[in-house]
């Protein structure tokens, strides 16, 4: 039987060649590779967040408009079900992706915002990073930061509230 490393090597070679399909049979085991056969695979992913109940989203290879619509709905913090009374009127800035929360552009720099800070729609409030993709999160609302809900360096979930903002 082939070792994993050898299979990786084979994938590499097949990828670089003009072969469309590759079959290897030896001693009862069989490996089949096909270049464009992976079109219909469907992956299931669980997304959790504090405000939104756990929910599965089917990701399809084709651009799936209905799925996007569904996600939009789930991210919007407009239905504060489990929010304390005193924060009922506060706006939540949520994380658009899973990743690491950074309060400042670099470890030595000052935080983008602190409680009490005034923000406008395009103020940057933090960075969420995953796999060296940096997402500068904008407030998307005019108001005042009331509370920072995430710790510097903490892993945050998709849809997780990061800040409470008192709208103006």
């Amino acid at each position: 039987m082939l070792k994993v490393q050898e299979i990786r090597e084979l994938i590499k070679l097949v990828d670089q060649s003009s072969i469309e399909e590759f079959v290897y049979e030896y001693d009862g085991s069989k490996i089949k590779m096909k270049k464009t056969a992976s079109g219909s695979q469907v992956a299931t992913q669980a997304v959790t967040s504090a405000a939104v109940k756990e929910q599965s989203i089917i990701e399809q290879a084709e651009p799936a408009k209905p799925v996007q619509a569904e996600k939009t709905e789930s991210v919007k913090p407009s239905q504060p079900e489990e929010v304390k009374e005193d924060s009922a009127n506060l706006h939540k800035i949520t994380s658009p992706m899973v990743g690491t929360f950074y309060k400042s552009p670099s470890p030595d720099a000052d935080a983008y915002v602190k409680p009490g800070a005034k923000v406008t729609k395009d103020s940057i409030v933090c960075i969420v990073e995953a796999m060296k993709l940096f997402n500068e999160i904008e407030a998307e609302i005019n108001g005042e930061i009331v509370e920072v809900l995430a710790e510097d360096g903490q892993l945050v979930e998709y849809g997780q509230p990061l800040f409470l903002v008192k709208p103006e």
Binding site: Q68, T72, V75, P96, L133, F134, N135
Partner: peptide, 16 residues
């Protein structure tokens, strides 16, 4: 080295 930045609204990518 590769470093990527995102310009996005909560549910839509403007650019990478």
């Amino acid at each position: 080295g590769i470093l990527t930045e995102l310009q996005a609204e909560s549910d839509k990518i403007n650019s990478i």
